[in-house]
């Protein structure tokens, strides 16, 4: 089976990793968290969301922790996902890479900031 590509890490996958940084979430929870952390810019549809989740699970960057009920959403049982250690490390590396890019952009006066 062709491996899903996580290198470079797609934006959706990175957002999912970030959304799981503080707590375990189910699919809809992840979608809402991503929407919130991106100020509504990114709203993951079911295909993109679960496609990415599948890739991340296969790469062992997140893992399924079992099913639970989210009382706020009703009595349905939902699958919860958790960030693995590897996933956390990768998210940090990615964040650092992006921070580095931002630093360079500032130096090159592409981006405004405290040094500009």
């Amino acid at each position: 089976m062709p491996k899903r590509k996580l290198d470079p890490l797609p934006s959706a996958a990175f957002q999912i990793l970030l959304s799981l940084a503080d707590e375990d979430r189910h699919g809809y929870g992840i979608m809402r968290q991503v929407e919130e952390q991106t100020s509504g810019r990114v709203r993951l549809g079911p295909g993109t969301l679960y496609g990415s989740i599948q890739s991340l699970v296969e790469a062992q960057l997140i893992e399924e922790v079992g099913e639970g009920v989210d009382a706020k959403l009703g009595q349905e049982r939902r699958r919860y996902y958790r960030l693995t250690t590897t996933g956390r490390k990768l998210a940090r590396t990615e964040a650092e890479r992006l921070a580095d890019m931002v630093r360079i952009a500032r130096e090159r006066k592409i981006l405004g900031g405290e040094h500009a």
């Binding site: 699919g27 809809y28 939902r78």
Partner: peptide
């Protein structure tokens, strides 16, 4: 993921 996606 069918059921999860439908739920979403």
């Amino acid at each position: 993921f069918g059921a999860e996606a439908a739920r979403l």
